[in-house]
């Protein structure tokens, strides 16, 4: 019930045009990695997946943001089934990578934002290493680049009232970690795959 409402609401507010450019929706295990510009990003990508796929897909989000008040906690835990990770002070016991791998299990998919925080600059920030480690540990999972466009104008950083413009979510062709590929090379390639969706 709350889930349906949230999906409808986020589709209405974001007016998202959903484009499957490089792959088709599928229930196989995937990691969707996207640029991060707005608080709505995770919600809108999650809502734009077909319901069968959505059931299996969990957004990865910053714990400090999502446990701030009861409403966010409820949304993160009960509705989105978010994987909440520590981004400020990761320790051996509180390791985002281990949490993500555990959440992935053998049937779930994840939505992650490898830039780390939300960006106000127009250029994307370099991707963090987590994406590379995930790719190395789970070669069986598909890594799907996702480009979110215009959502930062709908709800920019620091604002709480959305302006209902139209946005788009584009899903690109999955990429793979090549044999012997270096970390920086892979991360650059992943980012290029997201950027390339702007022209498609």
């Amino acid at each position: 019930m709350t889930r349906t409402l949230l999906v409808v609401l986020s589709k209405l507010v974001s007016g998202a045009n959903i484009r499957w450019v490089g792959c088709a929706p599928d229930v196989r295990q995937r990691i969707y990695f996207a640029n991060h510009t707005s608080n709505l990003d995770a919600l809108v990508i999650w809502a734009s997946l077909p319901s069968l796929v959505r059931e299996l897909t969990r957004p990865v989000a910053a714990r400090d943001y999502w446990i701030k008040d009861p409403l966010r906690r409820h949304l993160a835990n009960k509705v989105l089934h978010a994987v909440l990770i520590e981004r400020k002070k990761p320790t051996v016991h509180d390791n985002p990578l281990a949490d993500m791998l555990a959440a992935l299990g053998d049937r779930h998919s994840l939505i992650i934002f490898p830039e780390g925080g939300r960006q106000t600059a127009t250029e994307m920030m370099p991707f963090k290493a987590g994406l590379f480690h995930l790719a190395k540990d789970r070669p069986d999972v598909e890594f799907v680049p996702v480009l979110i466009d215009n959502l930062n104008r709908i709800l920019p950083k620091g604002e709480f009232l959305p302006v209902p413009l139209l946005s788009s979510v584009s899903f690109g062709a999955p990429i793979k970690l090549e044999a012997g590929e270096e970390k920086t090379r892979f991360l650059e390639r992943a980012q290029a795959a997201v950027k390339a969706l702007r022209q498609s």
Partner: peptide, 17 residues
Amino acid sequence: REFITLTPTRYGDHRSL
């Protein structure tokens, strides 16, 4: 919504919009 989407505005316009 269509018109403003195509029209570049900046962060400073958010409240006006």
